[in-house]
Amino acid sequence: MSGARAKIMDSIRRGLHRGAPDEAARAECEARLARHASGPIPARGQLDSEGQVALFAKMAEGVSATVERLEGYEDVPAAVARYLKANNLPAEIRLAPAPMVAQLDWSSQPLIEVTAGASDGSHKVGLSPAFAGVAETATLMMVSGPEAPTTLNFLPDHHLILLPRSRLFGAYEEAWARLRAGYGEGEMPRTVNLVTGPSRSADIGHVPQLGAHGPRRLHILIVDDEAAPER
């Protein structure tokens, strides 16, 4: 409805007592967009790497997520096996088709049935890589793409997430900076999910319950990698 567009723009400009923005106003807004300056950054996340891991783990516990620290990617399959067993789950896992995950060697866990791809809701347990983690609130940044189906973040009851320690930041703004470095200024993948703990709702009886529509459990594996793997 282009008629509506013109009508709305007219009404906005009438309210602002001006016509279309002049050159100076445009330049100011353009500069503001190009700068994309950060607002106040909470001091709590501005720590060294070990401090950020500790803060992330503490905040994750506060939102009922669990965290496990691994020395390297080679420890992931055994950690998955332990998780499945401890939670009485079938020996099956659905993987995001990402290199970080695809390169895992599952030969030590021959009993686990491993498949890769998006989820149609029939998978109990999913494993995906996080693009970044933010210690401030134990938030995971998940990005969509051929290597990371969004459905895996929401449909399985149990969501296991690989977070390389080199991708753990103090604040959201640092994660955005890393995303811009990968995708370009002003560009985004189709979906960026910031995930903080398992799904929950307090809509019945005002009592918080886990597992409303998304995962009932969120288990984060922080892997001590050498350097950030390129996506």
Partner: peptide
């Protein structure tokens, strides 16, 4: 401190 899901959507699937 933060809601569980904050999701940024940009265009249709690629």
């Amino acid at each position: 401190e933060m809601s569980v899901y904050t999701t940024f959507s940009t265009g249709p699937r690629r």
